[in-house]
């Protein structure tokens, strides 16, 4: 029997839509075109088939997602993931937090930061640079956003360049978007042994 995951984890759950996704075999020409580029360039998932209900948004959103998270230069990929994790924790998006904590751990070859975040929560005691990044992304993700000039000073004092700060704003904001789709339109479901990859 499936069960909804309620606690943050790096073990990536399944995602079960709360609305009925489109059927790939019944997709329109426009939907098929949009489905060619999926977030993270992975296979077509139930999530993307759900988003295909609004094909005009999906067609733009997928390349935008990939550009913000993966384009060369600026902030490192693992630090962009930290921005994504902060937003996902504020918005309680268990699925997004799991996916991006897993990516962060793989990119860093360490689970130290994500272990701390999931055990100590939003106020976790992180090394100075990661703390400044996480703190800023957490405050930007609040509603209304709570960032102030002092938070920006903290980022600069922690050594972030302008291009890195911009990438942090973009990655945290992107997850303000992604969480409001993933967490609203579906549930994270515990992966049973038969679902293991």
């Amino acid at each position: 029997m499936s069960s909804v995951v309620r606690k943050f984890t790096r073990r990536v759950p399944l995602w079960k839509p709360r609305v009925t996704p489109i059927k790939q075999e019944e997709a329109t020409k426009e939907q098929l075109e949009a489905l060619k580029i999926t977030p993270s360039n992975t296979k077509v998932s139930a999530y993307v088939l759900t988003l295909a209900h609004d094909v005009e948004s999906l067609a733009v959103r997928s390349p935008l997602f990939n550009a913000i998270m993966y384009d060369e230069g600026g902030m490192s990929r693992s630090e962009r993931e930290l921005g994504a994790i902060a937003a996902s924790m504020v918005n309680q998006c268990i699925y997004c937090a799991a996916v991006h904590a897993d990516r962060h751990a793989k990119l860093e070859n360490s689970t130290e930061v994500t272990e701390k975040l999931f055990s100590e929560g939003l106020k976790a005691d992180l090394p100075p640079r990661q703390a400044a990044i996480f703190h800023f992304a957490r405050k930007l993700s609040a509603t209304p956003p709570e960032t102030d000039p002092q938070d920006m000073d903290e980022l600069r004092k922690a050594g972030l360049k302008e291009a890195e700060i911009l990438d942090l704003i973009l990655s945290a904001a992107l997850f303000g978007w992604a969480n409001r789709l993933m967490h609203v339109l579906g549930d994270p479901i515990r992966r049973e042994p038969s679902h293991e990859r």
Partner: peptide, 21 residues
């Protein structure tokens, strides 16, 4: 419902990139 979520979610992003920048 998906259309409404996309609208809300995009504006949440727009609020945050403009606030941050």
């Amino acid at each position: 419902i998906v259309r409404v979520c996309q609208l809300v979610a995009f504006i949440a992003y727009q609020v945050r990139i403009t606030t941050g920048m």
